[in-house]
């Protein structure tokens, strides 16, 4: 029982990270219908940015975190303004190839700047653990859960109550109508990219104590992609729930299923979900009408 609870907590925490990365995907997809295959690389760059500010520059953890988020926001916004914006209206295959290309460039760029070694990012909660009747709770995992809940609330308030948030919602529902209502759609889309990069940075920083920082951190993007698809690609709560589901599947299949299922169980569930309900569990995307 204790083992079960332990796995549950850890799975929830890992799932929250998947969910946050998936959230970044969904934000970008909802706004501009660009499927961002470089989201995992944004997570990696975010972690490296935090590493640079905190370890290499020796800043306070929280100051470094805020600086990393700001730097990544600028990077995400610029990425949209300089590159991604140019392929609006091209077939979906072009956007897929473009973002795959951007991801490869980012990964090799990171390998050139920071080197191929594995780094660790010390956090203020590293060593602390709590014991509850046989269940060992690491402070890192609790912090991840708390951050996800907090970030979810913040994003909800942002989309509900701020002008920019409402403009983003409008632009993602109908670009033309939003444009006619005086919303600067291009700038709003760049804003969505910046926001998505910030979310990716937070996910990267939370992932750092669990899996260390190196250029393969971007692989989390694939898991998150699966999470986003399970949740239905157009749905923000769906993405987080899909991520949590995937995190739980990952940890439980690693312990209770035969060897070899740890890496594939998530994908098998993904295929099963797609067969049963092709639009994902929470998807509201119907067929295009003429």
């Amino acid at each position: 029982m204790a083992e079960f609870l332990q796995l549950l907590i850890n799975g929830l925490a890992v799932g929250c990270i998947y969910g946050l990365v998936a959230l970044g995907f969904v934000l970008i997809y909802k706004a501009g219908e660009v499927v961002n295959f470089a989201q995992g690389e944004l997570v990696m760059l975010g972690a490296f940015a935090a590493f640079t500010f905190v370890v290499q520059f020796g800043l306070n953890y929280w100051v470094g975190l805020v600086l990393a988020m700001a730097a990544m926001a600028v990077f995400g916004g610029l990425l949209d303004m300089v590159v991604v914006r140019r392929i609006v209206g091209q077939p979906q295959f072009s956007t897929v190839m473009l973002t795959i290309g951007i991801g490869v460039v980012m990964r090799s760029g990171a390998a050139m700047v920071w080197g191929p070694e594995t780094r660790s990012l010390p956090t203020p909660f590293d060593a602390t653990t709590f014991h509850f009747g046989g269940v060992v709770l690491s402070a890192v995992y609790l912090a991840i859960l708390a951050t996800t809940v907090l970030l979810g609330l913040l994003l909800f308030c942002f989309f509900r109550f701020t002008r920019m948030g409402v403009a983003m919602q409008a632009a993602s529902q109908n670009q033309l109508a939003a444009y006619c209502m005086g919303i600067p759609v291009k700038r709003v889309l760049s804003g969505v990219w910046a926001l998505s990069a910030v979310v990716a940075t937070i996910a990267g920083v939370m992932l750092a104590p669990i899996s260390l920082v190196d250029t393969n951190l971007g692989a989390v993007g694939l898991k998150a992609f699966a999470a986003a698809v399970i949740g239905g690609f157009g749905s923000v709560p769906g993405a987080v729930l899909g991520g949590i589901l995937l995190g739980l599947i990952d940890l439980f299949s690693g312990v209770y299923l035969p060897q070899g299922f740890k890496d594939t169980a998530g994908y098998i569930v993904l295929l099963a979900v797609l067969v049963v309900c092709p639009q994902g569990l929470f998807g509201a995307v119907g067929r295009k009408k003429v």
Binding site: V83, R86, I87, Q90, S94, M97, L98, I100, G101, I102, G103, V104, V105, R107, S108, G109, A111, M112, P116, T215
Partner: peptide, 19 residues
């Protein structure tokens, strides 16, 4: 000397072709 040079060039070419 960078081993990451080759994938980087692949990615850049891909981006420029799409654009």
């Amino acid at each position: 000397q960078q081993p990451a040079l080759e994938p980087g060039i692949y990615g850049l070419i891909l981006v420029f072709v799409v654009l």
